[in-house]
Amino acid sequence: MTRIEVQEMHFSYTEQEPILKGINITLDERSTAIIGQNGAGKTTFVKLLKGLLRPMQGKILFDGKDIACMTVAQIAKHIGLVFQNPNDQIFKNNILDEVMFGPINIGMDEQEAKRHSQNALAMVGLSDCEDKNPYDMGLSERKLIAIASVLAMDTDVVIFDEPTIAQDYRGIEKIKKIIRTLKAEGKMVLTITHDMDFVADCFERTIVFAKGKILLDGQTDKVFSKKEELSQAYLEPPHVTQLCNSLGYDKVFLRVEDFVSYVKSKGIENK
């Protein structure tokens, strides 16, 4: 089972302003959401896991091995990261080439890479666009291309930085399905997001970042029951939970279906 341990990690971009202030956490096979205020340090954190940034203090162990002695390219064989801004990730003029870039670099042969890439494109629903130029696509599609490029690498760990940006409802459903598939394949999935309903639907564990520290960490429904801490971290619970709270229920739900079946079971219906 893949494990990432982060020990007493500190990081800053400039001397004046510490960004991450002593992060201790172990990431495991549970599908995990990272949430928190803008600027809390979420993107910085995953870039550190990926080796693109290096900690000032503390260390990151991947399956017990310190990643400080691995190059980014070596880490890339194990950890895939979909960037927050797809413009920072996409650099080829052809979608299939873009998606195949990763697999080929980590040592797949041409055919295997192509097979993986086409699978990945099918998962994001862009199979008929293989030969198009990514620069001609809109933001939502570029985000999906970025996702496919990482899926095609078939890494043990997949990290998404705000995958639902610009996605419509079907796009979000597609991404949920991808996350569930990855989970079923036994991969470690880590997702940064601001969409609380998405967190409620898809993730077993939720980590709340606030001002460079971890404020909450636990099972998703437990985290969403901590109203005060959430609001301190500039967050709010999922919509259904908000409804439960304002109705004064002691039982709190995260998903529409659960709420509906509970209310139905209580026999409360509008006559």
């Binding site: 419509d168 409802y169 079907r170 309903d197 999922p238 919509h239 259904v240 409804l243 529409v256 709420f259 509906v260 209310v263 139905k264 409360i268 219906e269 509008n270």
Partner: peptide, 18 residues
Amino acid sequence: YGVTAPAYTRICKSLGIK
């Protein structure tokens, strides 16, 4: 049309509350 109603509306639709 590929859109969905707000969570609250979906709840009320399922419960038949208008």
